[in-house]
Amino acid sequence: MQASIQLPDDPKLRYLLRIGDTCLILGQRLGEWCGHAPIIEEDIALTNMALDLIGQARGVLTLAGDQCPQDYDEDQLAFLRDERDYLNPTLAELPRGDFAFTVLRNLMLSTWMKLLWDRLRDSSDTELAAIAAKALKEARYHQQHAADWLQRLGDGTEESRRRVEAALAQLWPYAAELFEPDAVDAAAVSARLGPPAESLREPWLAEMAAVFGEVRLALPADGRFRSTGRQGVHSEHMGYILAEMQHLQRSYPGGVW
């Protein structure tokens, strides 16, 4: 059994892990649709997007590993951390739900990622900027895919509409976390590593409102709940997804394809 790696306390590392882990965990969730999507085109689309996300995660986690004195590689960071050392927003880890839930979560996260990658192209870290320039193009396709489906489901049958509304009620409270400022965020801003988290809120809301407007969905009001995945404090679902992801590397250390 492979023991967990220890991470240095470094704000840049934490900032990078927040981005890389969002890609990694959402990619894993989308990959769960392989063989289960409602039609084959969607099976292919969701797994294609998962592949893009895992590729983005590889780039960002490799860069994150370079920040550690132990020079961890992408696999060590992906598979050998304890739950509290994963820093994705809780939204990314929620179980995949039904197709409407997956579509809406993709819309929320790909819109956010698109806006973030766009700003990260100006990062003071040239490697992060290069990853962002590539990922931005991919995120646009992901967002367009989710927006197309949200429109179809929202304007579809009573059943599809009901499912979209249910997904919205479940997912919306997790959005607020994406825009919460904190010390890691402030350090990234002062190092010109990335934009202030809260600066993405208005453009994100505007794009969400544009999509929702097409299907007469109102933006829900903000509640007081704040999820805390970016602080490493996750939902009850995180342990299970990590167990599934980590099992092979923990049991067969260093195993490769």
């Binding site: 085109e41 292919i44 294609n48 893009d52 396709y141």
Partner: peptide, 13 residues
């Protein structure tokens, strides 16, 4: 267009 995603990342159906 049937789907923006195809048999590889670079292709659509």
């Amino acid at each position: 267009r049937l789907s923006a995603f195809g048999s590889t990342a670079c292709k659509a159906l």
